[in-house]
Design a protein around this nucleic acid. Structure first.
Length: 476
RNA sequence: GCCGGGAUAGCCUAGAGGCGAGGCGAGGGACUGCAGAUCCCUUCCACCCGGGUUCAAAUCCCGGUCCCGGCUCCA
């Protein structure tokens, strides 16, 4: 069955068919680096990370490009405030962004093209538009003449007349028409500038994405993504530039993520209602944040609440508990020479959950639905472990395999599946468990409890069961 | 004005014509020195309102009500 994706361009779900078989070329609009990334950024980049991971999981080679806007009005403005140079400021926040994404386990893009490294390409692109008659030079810059391009508005469904009537677009001194937008801005005194055929200046915002995406992904590619707020004007303008330049369809599928909401309003820099990723990370682990994001479909708005984060934390804890239960059970597991009802039932539950997982992910990357499968396996396996004396190894493995694949797609349980690097740590824990067992037998509970409490502080949890004491790592 | 998204048990989220989903929370029980984890049971007719289509509607259609977003830099 084909993967279905919701395409903003057509406003419906379509079968996903990449242009080149077996390869997916995708471009996600990156940030303007002038401040700390907040939860809104985290949401879209985690969402696209999971989309990318899933496509890879399904066997595609994914070429992923994400740009950095490292020169623009906001950066200049902010740099003036902090006293840094625009270059230094951009560099600083670019590194911070990269660090935060790494912490959140977002797989790095294959290329992170920066505007300041692609001036020549951008100038070439503008020149081409000029040659083809779509661009003209005004007193303060070079502009794209929107009404020359027939398909304008096809992504955002905005009509040109409405746009002009709405008077939302600024007339601007050098423009022929109010709806035209800048491809190249001539430098004002004191601003950063680069040489060009139109004098010193810097690129407009939209042209960078058209230029850099085509440089790395070709004149047509599969997926272009970004936040909902980029549909208009950014992506609309990108389409105009690119299709005007190439003369054919540019991007197959446009995917957009929903906003993060705070008390009914969009989280944004300008409203000041944002939580930075760094603040969040003081209170919640990266995986909690990922789960929080993934419990909602990527296109739907996501309400930011502490309660919601706590839910995610509890849910993740439950999943990790299950994983630890399986690990502990592994020690007493046996080869299956025969299956009883419990094995059949558990096997079927895992099989059904796997199907559910793939169906959900195939259906426009429905992570919220796919996550349910994880809880279903969790229930089934926990139940199984309480019902049988000696679990069958094959059943445990099946469940672990599912956790591993789901974990790879969601970016969860990474540490659990990484090879244990603990040398004699485990032996030490086992020793303490033994000593404590003896203490308990002698009813010296105070000392026994001390061992348990102290180990817990070190991230090791002891649990007394009828079959003896087991220890688990606390992961969340 | 123009585009667009919502309203699902105490809460958070899926689903989208018949099999009523998952988690959290709450209550009870099993286990237990205590704690923790886990399991079992309970949380009564869950789907904003009013019409319609249908053998069948939370899901489709029509009409309301309420909430929200975008149309300006924004992920």
């Amino acid at each position: 069955m084909a993967i279905r994706v919701y395409n903003t361009l057509t406003r419906q779900k379509e079968d996903f068919r990449p242009i080149r078989e077996g390869e997916v070329r995708m471009y996600v609009c990156g940030p303007t680096v002038y401040d700390y990334p907040h939860l809104g950024h985290a949401r879209t980049y985690v969402a696209f990370d999971v989309i990318r991971r899933y496509l890879e999981h399904r066997g595609y080679t994914v070429l992923m490009v994400m740009n950095f806007t490292d020169i623009d009005d906001k950066i200049i403005k902010r740099a003036n405030e902090t006293g840094e140079g625009p270059r230094e400021l951009a560099e600083r926040f670019l590194r911070i962004f990269l660090e935060d994404m790494e912490t959140l386990k977002v797989k790095p893009a294959d290329v992170y093209p920066r505007v300041t490294e692609h001036m020549e390409d951008i100038i070439e692109f503008v020149k081409k538009l000029e040659e083809k008659g779509y661009a003209y030079e005004g007193s303060d810059g070079v502009y794209f003449e929107v009404r020359k391009f027939g398909g304008y508005g096809k992504l955002s469904k905005i009509k040109l007349e409405d746009l002009v009537k709405g008077a939302r677009v600024e007339p601007g001194e050098g423009k022929r028409n109010p709806e035209d937008f800048a491809l190249w801005k001539k430098a004002k005194p004191g601003e950063p500038k680069w040489e060009s055929p139109w004098g010193e200046g810097r690129p407009g915002w939209h042209i960078e994405c058209s230029t850099m995406s085509s440089k790395y992904l070709g004149e047509s590619f599969d997926i272009h993504g970004g936040g909902n707020d980029l549909i208009f004007p950014h992506h609309e303008n990108e389409i105009a530039q690119s299709e005007a330049c190439f003369g054919h369809e540019w991007v197959r599928y446009w995917l957009h993520t929903g906003f993060v909401m705070v008390d009914g309003e969009k989280m944004s820099k300008s409203l000041g209602n944002f939580v930075t990723v760094r603040e969040l990370l003081q209170r919640y682990s990266p995986e909690v944040i990922r789960l929080f994001v993934l419990q909602r479909h990527y296109r739907s708005p996501l309400d930011y609440t502490e309660e919601g984060l706590m839910h995610a934390k509890n849910n993740l804890e439950r999943l990790y508990n299950t994983l630890e239960n399986i690990r502990v059970a592994m020690e007493k597991a046996e080869i299956a020479f025969k299956w009883d009802r419990e094995e059949f039932e558990t096997y079927e539950a895992i099989r059904d959950a796997r199907k559910k997982f793939y169906d959900a992910m195939d259906d426009d990357f429905n992570t919220a639905e796919a996550l349910k499968a994880l809880f279903e396996v969790s229930n089934a396996i926990n139940r199984y472990l309480t019902l049988v004396e000696r679990p069958k190894e094959s059943i445990l493995r099946k469940s672990l395999e599912f956790f591993r694949t789901a974990g790879e797609v969601f970016g969860l349980f990474e540490d659990y599946f990484r090879e244990e690097k603990a040398g004699n740590e485990e032996a030490l824990i086992r020793l303490l468990v033994e000593v404590r067992a003896q203490l308990r037998k002698e009813r010296k509970f105070e000392l026994a409890d001390k061992i348990r409490t102290e180990l817990r502080n070190l991230g090791i949890q002891l649990e007394d069961t009828p079959q003896g004491t087991v220890w688990k790592r606390i992961k969340v």
